[in-house]
Nucleic acid binder design. Sequence first.
DNA 1: GTTGACCCTTCCCCCGGAGGAGACACCACC
DNA 2: GGTGGTGTCTCCTCCGGGGGAAGGGTCAAC
Lengths: 300, 300
Amino acid sequence: MRTGLTIGDFSRITHLSVKMLRRYHEAGLLEPAEVDPSSGYRYYTTAQVPTAQVIHRFRELGMPVREIGRILSTPDPEARALLVAEHLRRVELQLESTRSAVATLRRLLVPTGTPVEVDLRTRPPTRAVAIGATVVRDQVVAWYDEAMTELDATLAAAGLEPSGPHGGLYDDTLFTDGHGHALVYIPVHVPASAGGRVRTVTLPAAELAVTVHHGPHDDIDVTYGVLGTYIAEQAITVSGPVHEIYVVGPRDTPDASAWRTEIGWPVFRTWAGQPSASGAAREADPVGPSEGWPRPSARG
Amino acid sequence: MRTGLTIGDFSRITHLSVKMLRRYHEAGLLEPAEVDPSSGYRYYTTAQVPTAQVIHRFRELGMPVREIGRILSTPDPEARALLVAEHLRRVELQLESTRSAVATLRRLLVPTGTPVEVDLRTRPPTRAVAIGATVVRDQVVAWYDEAMTELDATLAAAGLEPSGPHGGLYDDTLFTDGHGHALVYIPVHVPASAGGRVRTVTLPAAELAVTVHHGPHDDIDVTYGVLGTYIAEQAITVSGPVHEIYVVGPRDTPDASAWRTEIGWPVFRTWAGQPSASGAAREADPVGPSEGWPRPSARG
DNA sequence: GTTGACCCTTCCCCCGGAGGAGACACCACC
DNA sequence: GGTGGTGTCTCCTCCGGGGGAAGGGTCAAC
C-alpha cells in the first residue's frame, strides 16, 4: 500500500471512469491521496472509495460538479445535510414535472377536438398590491410562490381583504428570450402601505382575449397555443404583457385538476391612448422599467 | 395571414424561445411554413403550433433532438406510437433509477459500519451456454436482459435444465473505459447445440474474492467498493473479468430486496498457468476476443 | 533490459443550449 | 417617401459533462 492505488485500480473499484476521475481531480472534487511530482501519476487510497461513491450518486442525480464540490467542502455536517436535502427536493420536483410532462404528451398525442372558447373582454383599471421583478423563465414559478406569500403577508398585516382573485402579468420576452419582467398582484379596494418590494399599483384598462385553462399548470402551454392560434386566425394585433388570473389556484384547493386559470392576451393597447400616458399614468406602470407597452408585432 | 407568423409571434404562442425555434428549423424538426428566400425570414402558421407543443414535451422528457426528428418523420402512426411508447418506458425506468439513487445516497450519507464478508474461493471449471459481446456500459443492463432471454429460450428448446444460477463475466474495461466485453451464461451439464449467438463454453477455474450483494442492483457499486477495498487492503493482485452470480435475481422473485448477487473478483490468474494456455484452452475463452486475461495491475 | 500495459497531457468532437455582435429587414409613423 | 426602432438574420464564442485519439513518459513482470 505504499504507493496506493493507481487510477485504473481505483476506477475498477469505484466504477468511475478514468476520464471522470481525472476530471474530478481537476475540479477539486476528489484529490488523489498522492500525486507523483515527477510522473504526474495519481495514487488513491481505499479510504477515498466512499467519497467517490457519493460523487457518483450526486452526479447520477444531476447535481452539477461544482455544487458537489461545495457540498464536499462543507465541513459542518448540518449545513451539508441541508444542501443535500435541498437538492433532493429539487430532484423530487423534477420527477414530478417529468411525470406530468408524460401525461401532457399522452394528451397531446391523442388530440381531442376541444372547442375553443375565447372571450374578448375589457379589463377595467384594477387597484392592487403587487410585486414586480425581472425574472428568468425557469425561476418564475419559484419567484411567484415567494412573491405571492409576501403579498399575502402584507395584506394580512394591513387587515385588508382581496377584492378578487390573484393574478400576474408576464412580459412576452419571458417566452421569446427566456427572461423578462413579471408582476404578481392581489386586487384590493384601498391602497396598502407599501413596504419593501410591495407596491400599490393600478393595472391599466386593457382589451383582452381571454380563455380559461383547466387543471394544473404543467400543460398551460397548450392552452396558450390554443389562445394564440385563435388570436392569430382572427387577425388581431397583440400587444403588451399577458395576463393570468388564478381564479381557482393552489391557494384555493390542493386538487390541481380543479384549478381554473384565465389567460388574457391584450389585443390592442389602451395604454398609449389614455390621457397623460407618459406622465402620471406611467408612474403607476405595473410592469416596471419598460417604456410603456411594446408596439404591436403580429402581422395578422 | 398571407405572410404567416413571424418567429417572434410563433415564439409567444408556443412558448418556445426564438433561439430554439431556429435550432429546430436547422435540425429539420420544425420547418417554417415559409422562408422568405431574400431575407431569410421564417414564417410559421398556426397549424404548426401543435407540432411545436409536441416537440416541447419531448424535449422536456429529455428526448434527443434527432430522435424527435425520427419520430416526427415517421409517417406510420403505429410505428410512431411504438417509438413514443419506447421512450416513455425509458423515462419511467430513469425515474425509477433516480428514485433509487436517492435512496442509495441517503444510505451512503448515513454510513452503517457494515461488516465486510469476503470469501476467497476457487471457482471450478464450469460448463455453460453463454452469449458474449462487446457492450457499452449504459447498455449493459438492456443487453443482459435480451441475452438472458435468448439463453433461456435456447435451453427450453433443447429441453435442458440449468445446473446452477445464472451469471455473467464483465471485463473491467467496462468500468474504466465505459465499454468492454461481457458474457452472460447459464450453467448446464451437457452441451447444448449452439445456435446464433449462443455458444457452449467452459468458464475456466479461477481464484475469486467473493462477497454477496443484497437487494436491487442500483447500489451494487457500493458493494463493489467494499470488495475492492478489501482486496486492495489484503494486497491481493487482481486479474481478469469480474464474475457476477445471480443467486437470487429478477428471474426468481420480483421483490428486489430479496435478490442476492455474488460478486467474484479474480485475485490471480489461473489461466496462463494452465497447460496449453494459448492453444485449445484459448479456444474456449469465454470472454471472447481479448488475448487471454489481462495481467495483474494492482500494485498493492 | 525489454516490453507491454498503464498513465500522462493536449486537442478535438458531441450534445443541447445561452448569449452576443454586426448586419439587414420590416413597418408604423410622420 | 423617409426614418427610427425593433425584429430577425447569420456567425461566433462559451458552457457542462462527457467520449475519443494522439503522442510520449512510466512501471514492473518477465
